[in-house]
Amino acid sequence: MNNSENESIFHHPFTFPESALKDLGERLRHTRWPDPETVGDWSQGVPLSRMQSLCDYWLNDYNWRRCEARLNGYAPSMTRIDGMNIHFLHLRSPEPDAVPLILTHGWPGSVIEFLKVAPMLADPRAHGGDPQDAFHVVIPTMPNFGLSDKLTTPDWSPERVANAWVELMRRLGYEGFFAQGGDWGYAITNVLGGIGRPAVRAVHFNMFPIFPYMEARNEQEQQALDRLKTFASNENGYMTEQIQSPQTLSYGLTDSPVGQAAWIYELVVKYTDGNAEELIGKDEILDNITLYWLTATAASSARIYWQSMLSFKEHEIQVPVGYSQFPKDIHQSSRRWVEERYPTLVHYNELQMGGHFAAWERPELFVKEVRDSFRHSRK
Rank of each mutant, 00 (worst) to 15 (best):
I86S: 09
T104Y: 07
F177N: 04
G129P: 02
P100T: 02
G173C: 06
S93C: 11
D82G: 13
S110D: 09
G194H: 05
M169R: 05
A164M: 14
S157F: 09
V138S: 03
T141E: 03
G176S: 15
P76Q: 10
V166Y: 07
I81F: 01
L192E: 04
G73W: 12
G196I: 06
P124T: 10
K116P: 06
G194F: 10
M78L: 15
K150S: 10
G73A: 04
N163Q: 15
R197Q: 14
G83K: 10
D130F: 05
M84N: 10
L115R: 02
M120G: 10
S148H: 05
T79E: 01
H105C: 05
F114Y: 13
G73L: 07
H105I: 01
P124N: 02
G146E: 14
F177C: 06
D123C: 09
D123P: 03
K150L: 07
A118N: 11
A134T: 05
G73Y: 04
G181M: 01
F114H: 01
Q180R: 06
D149Q: 13
V117H: 03
P143S: 11
P158F: 00
D155V: 11
R160M: 06
P119S: 00
D130K: 14
F88A: 02
D149G: 15
Y174S: 09
P94F: 10
L91E: 13
M142F: 02
L115W: 02
D82I: 02
T104I: 15
F114G: 04
A179W: 03
G129V: 04
F177M: 00
G196A: 03
V203Y: 02
L91Q: 06
M84L: 15
M142Y: 10
K116H: 00
I86M: 15
P119C: 09
D82S: 15
R201S: 06
A199D: 14
Q180C: 14
G128H: 08
L101T: 03
A187N: 12
S110R: 00
D97K: 10
Q180T: 08
K150A: 07
R201G: 09
G83N: 09
H105R: 04
S148E: 02
V137S: 00
L147E: 03
G106R: 03
A187Q: 14
W165L: 07
I102D: 07
V166R: 12
I195R: 13
I102N: 08
L115M: 15
P124Y: 05
L89Q: 09
A202D: 10
I139F: 08
S77E: 13
Q180P: 06
A134C: 12
A75H: 12
G181E: 05
I139E: 06
I139V: 13
G185S: 05
P143K: 03
A202W: 01
F178E: 11
V200K: 01
N72P: 07
G173D: 11
G83H: 08
T152H: 13
P198E: 10
S93Q: 01
T104H: 10
D133I: 07
T104V: 15
V111G: 09
W165H: 06
A199F: 08
R201H: 12
L115P: 09
G129L: 03
A199Q: 13
